[in-house]
Design a protein around this nucleic acid. Structure first.
Lengths: 245, 245
DNA sequence: CTCCTTAAGAGTCATCCTGACTATAAAGGT
DNA sequence: ACCTTTATAGTCAGGATGACTCTTAAGGAG
């Protein structure tokens, strides 16, 4: 069988049309908790339920472009801000009955954002809010599954990439970076060991000149760092206890 | 915006229908080389070019079911054999112009098969063949990209999962397992160190009772092993030289 | 039959990385 | 003045790894 032939010969409309959507698992760390951006659905099915933001891919868009467009619409972030965000394709969800209305294939993305702005309630959603991970009830469609997959994926990528800096503002302390790991993994890490690991990995972070940040927090003021150029972590920074599949 | 509303209100047919296909990067290790299952396209576009096997997702199928069905059709493997194969969703390719005929979104899968049967030339493809990785010319559509992504993904997963056993027959020697790593990574590994790592990782492999395999090869006969129950490798078995992104 | 080649398998050793831990410095709160 | 909190420096033992050496057991060439 050739790769792209329709079931009944070549005719673009000889088969059931699929709708293609994107769904976004937008994660952030706020006040030492992992938060997810959710929208409240305004219509059936699942009216009143929380769902991941997302929407249809337009005729001339790639899925990633659609994801960035939807993200800007939902969060009120500027287009240039959204353009720089870490956005990664997670997986595509294709179960025939995942949407009761019609056949919808959804390309899911994960986005990591630093210290997030409060989303505008506007747009087309009834409301869009940052919800602490796990405190939402059941989400619409298969979005529970998507969100769980996103969490697992992000947790795994923290191990062997420098992705954690995507949760941080441009300049951050090592304490804030450690907080990202602790929050996503749900564990406590040893401060000195974490520091040693980050600082001895070439290109993970780079020190920022100037005085320590004058923060309102307690304790000794911390030095500031920027994300370094590296993307991969060798050797990785493994989760304690070994990672169960 | 609610998650699944059509651009112009709710009407399943109010937007351009997308075709949804699956493409398969089926990899195997044969004669110390990585091979890919490719089909020769019988019609335009790209008639005469090699392409990844694949095809349209049928109305009541998930993408994974479609992938298994196509794989059975292309390779002539029995349904039960295909059911047990390692099949993993790789990524979805959605560039608007990736297929010149129409808007086609393709969900790509990676499959790993042990010592492969020669595919039947039958089916609908002009021919289906195992081709040594890299010796094919340019593939049709964006299949070069898909294949490269599959290679990279498999190489990465060998590091931190027990996936390598999916390339091996039910009973295999440590030399065969090492050959998988060497072939996919394109490096040579130290025999004793590889052996130590595999044997000290709980659940990676389990020894098979009985005499060593009477093989036609030279050298001391090797003991046989089966895949153990473990799926993750902790700590991972990292590629030499550090992995560039 | 004997030597050579090949690969399996056992073992050594130094180095690097990590986890656990102690200690000091510098801020805010009471 | 203390106490709490956090950053930062440093130590130390054990595990994992990379680079080796050595022995064992097969096939092939002469």
């Amino acid at each position: 069988m050739t790769s792209h032939r329709a079931p009944e010969g070549y005719d673009p409309y000889a088969f059931v049309p699929f709708a293609v959507t994107v769904d976004l698992a937008v994660l952030t760390v706020r006040e030492e908790r992992l938060h997810v951006l959710l929208v409240e659905r305004g219509q059936e099915p699942y009216a009143g339920s929380w769902a991941l933001p997302g929407g249809f891919v337009l005729p001339q868009e790639s899925a990633e472009r659609a994801a960035r467009r939807e993200l800007a619409e939902e969060t009120g972030l500027s287009g240039t801000t959204v353009a720089g965000l870490h956005l990664e394709q997670l997986r595509t969800y294709t179960e025939p009955d995942r949407d009761p209305r019609m056949r919808v294939v959804s390309v899911a993305f994960t986005a990591l954002v630093p210290d997030p702005p409060e989303p505008r309630g506007g747009g087309d959603a009834a409301q869009a809010r940052w919800i602490p991970y796990g405190t939402h009830g059941r989400l619409a469609f298969d979005h529970d599954r998507i969100l769980a997959d996103a969490h697992e994926r992000v947790g795994a990528k923290l191990e062997y990439t420098c992705l954690a800096t995507a949760f941080c503002p441009p300049e951050f302390t090592l304490g804030e970076l450690r907080q990202v790991y602790e929050t996503v993994w749900g564990v406590e890490l040893d401060r000195p060991n974490f520091r040693r690991k980050v600082l001895t990995t070439p290109g993970f972070v780079q020190a920022v000149e100037g005085p320590p940040r004058l923060t309102g927090g307690r304790g000794k003021p911390a030095a500031l760092y920027r994300a370094g150029g590296a993307t991969a972590l060798h050797p990785p920074l493994l989760r304690p206890e070994g990672r169960p599949a």
